[in-house]
Write a protein that binds this DNA or RNA. Structure first.
Lengths: 333, 333
DNA sequence: CCAAATACTTTACGCGCGTAAATTATTTGT
DNA sequence: ACAAATAATTTACGCGCGTAAAGTATTTGG
């Protein structure tokens, strides 16, 4: 920057000011800097910039598992919103590992972020480490809530999700049983099970929950293997299966296919399968998956706006916002 | 660090040395530092660390599209290998946008990376910007090659991919036609088409290429829409369709389902569909997709090893390594 | 026990930039 | 044209650490 300021004929502090905000310098100097910029393509070092700044424009985005297109999609959405608001997002994934999650947060500190958008791993997260981080850095929790951490929580209304799609399934055929992982990684899963139980009771039907074994994040495989077992053992008491999430449903669809069981809502089909999440892939399963979708746009918009407002000093008491999902009617149920 | 060194009773330079490599200090001082570390959980600022270091341990990983599980998977694999080798990987995605790709590389410079693993967007990439970057930073190109940039290229042998699966399809049924995007984003697509043409000629069959319209990275949708058109217009001259990649095949499977066309290799099926890539999702389509898979492990291993060797000074002339794929036999073809 | 080797401490400077304070130059309003 | 307002410059220090050099303490080998 020293060299560049000499070349442009403008003092270094003014050049520094220019890069912070080009509008903050006189038009004539801006022109001189930009003219010099064309001859010498200089760019300030982002990390040195943030070294001694009171308020950085850095925003950290942390998701539990980037190889899940759901998180990849919502992360991309959040990134774009941050950029549009003039912030510099950096994306991190915990890769499903609680230790790595803590590690990521620690290295995030070095970035001196103005704020962080964090989707915790959930059940497996190291609570105390998360809390410590949230105490130091303005953090908005999204997707799955952990206690009342951070400045706010934004996610989907899992109770509405499950009761709504359960309602739909009951109205259009046999009441559904509920297909889930025995030890889900995500706390939302518990809400969904509870909501299923509540909804079934409210509608006057008897609930049935089929919980399958399986650890980790390979939900499709867990759904497939668990599906095979449940199908073979005739554990599904009705012809309609509501899955705790879309990835599990995708695995179950595969199991059905492999057993020659036709899935769909037409009379020639043996069972109906529905998912929950509106996973990017759910449109392309065979049959396309009926599901209840997160309002990706609304969740990420609300999350970004809330965090950026907090960064700008609009402090408000902790608040949980849960947005409704939209039923997506396709052919699987 | 100053404060912490005072607390631990060890001088700051020694503490600095400790964090660079704990083994490099005497056992007794190490013990004192680690004891102090338990009372005061201090962690050095990663970005300040790299500020004045000759050789950093940073490695940048850049992929064209993180929401594609294929790239997410290979990126995770690469990350792990870098960590295991004692490096600090940072992941970036160009989100399918050539301008963002350049932007990402620019901000990567600030990280002063020891090296970069770059999977370029391909056709759309800004060649000159990539070249400039590769001239300054040791960069290994993977997945899709752009000129002879960087220190080396590591990817899959697309010619082997397509000729191998074409061979398989010819041996087991009608010779395949080839289903692809008219203007593919990725240069590998051209190799695959050419390889298909070559292979068919070599086997004594007439090749047929069906190119569908569509821009961008929504391959499944492009495959689905293009598939519908091709099916309706009876453009598939044989009952066997080899798709240029798995995502296109997934979309085509959906189109087939929506038209009531049964896909598979049994006599009751109307057509066979095969993909290429070994996409993480290909196992769970209905029917599960026969495909030829990248050797994820071998590619990422070779890429990481080659880059890290180059970082360690093992300079070799530019070299292209293309690894063979493995045929994955499933039910779709 | 002593000399050599090794590890540590002190001191000092550098990385690439932000930023505050005091001066000086330029623009603006009238 | 002149004072007031605004913008740029100069100077200086700071961020959180790496690292080199010279000196001091500790360990090692015989």
């Amino acid at each position: 920057m020293e060299e560049f300021s000499a070349i442009s004929g403008i003092s270094r502090p003014t050049v520094s000011k220019y890069f912070h905000n080009p509008e903050s310098v006189r038009k004539s100097t801006r022109a001189r800097i930009e003219e010099a910029l064309e001859r010498y393509d200089y760019r300030p070092n982002i990390f040195a910039m943030n070294q001694n700044r009171k308020l950085t424009k850095n925003v950290g985005i942390v998701v539990p598992l980037l190889s899940d297109p759901y998180f990849a999609e919502i992360a991309r959405n959040l990134e774009q919103r941050c950029i549009d608001a003039g912030y510099r997002p950096t994306l991190f994934s915990a890769h499903g590992d609680p230790d790595l999650e803590v590690e990521v947060l620690e290295s995030l500190r070095s970035l001196k972020p103005a704020g962080v958008l964090l989707a915790p791993l959930g059940r497996a997260s190291h609570r105390d480490a998360l809390k410590k981080f949230c105490d130091d850095v303005p953090t908005l929790i999204f997707d799955s809530s952990v206690d009342e951490l951070g400045i706010a929580f934004v996610g989907s209304d899992n109770f509405q999700f499950t009761s709504h799609i359960t309602d739909y399934l009951c109205r259009t055929g046999e009441p559904p049983c509920f297909f889930e992982m025995k030890t889900p990684a995500n706390p939302n899963a518990h809400r969904r099970r509870q909501s299923y139980l509540d909804a079934m009771t409210a509608f006057g039907h008897e609930p049935h929950v089929i919980s399958v074994e399986g650890e980790g994040w390979s939900f499709e495989e867990i759904g497939r293997v668990g599906g095979h077992q449940a199908l073979s053992n005739k554990q599904f008491p009705t012809n309609t299966i509501l899955c705790s999430n879309d990835r599990l449903a995708i695995g179950l669809l595969t199991a059905c296919y492999e057993q020659g069981i036709k899935v769909g809502r037409t009379p020639d089909c043996a069972i109906r399968v529905a998912g929950q999440d509106g996973h990017p892939h759910s449109r392309y399963t065979c049959p396309p998956l009926t599901t209840i979708s997160h309002d990706y746009d609304a969740v990420s918009k609300h999350a970004a706006i809330t965090l950026l407002a907090a960064i700008d000093g609009h402090v408000e008491p902790w608040k949980s916002t849960r947005l409704e999902g939209k039923l997506i009617l396709r052919d699987s149920a």
